[in-house]
């Protein structure tokens, strides 16, 4: 859960874009390129897992009698 929080999808996609651009540049050494490739593959896997897990979690925010905010799962008919 902590790792998931730390993982920012958009930033991962941006990093991936940067890696691909760097690799498409001829001047990168092969050993560096291979390290970046590994990182890129890992990012793609993480992004795909994120996409698979992503779903809407619906909640409802009200107050209890004491005026304390009360957050509970929402049951809205759709």
């Amino acid at each position: 859960m902590e790792e998931e929080k730390a993982f920012r999808f958009k930033e991962a996609v941006k990093e991936l874009e940067t890696i691909v651009r760097e690799l498409e540049d001829d001047t990168v050494d092969l050993d560096v390129a291979l390290k970046k490739y590994e990182r890129g593959i890992r990012l793609i896997r993480m992004c795909n897992e994120y996409l698979d897990k992503a779903e809407l979690r619906l909640k409802e925010l009200t107050q209890d009698e004491g005026g304390v905010p009360l957050l509970k799962d929402a049951q809205l008919e759709e």
């Binding site: 991936l16 691909v20 690799l23 092969l30 490739y37 890129g40 793609i44 992004c47 996409l51 992503a54």
Partner: peptide, 23 residues
């Protein structure tokens, strides 16, 4: 959702292609 799924597939292809080319 589709936009990102497509983007990831596309980036993956470019990643592999660029490294294969280097090798």
């Amino acid at each position: 959702r589709e936009e990102y799924e497509d983007a990831l597939i596309h980036l993956g292809e470019r990643l592999t292609r660029s490294v294969s080319y280097k090798i």
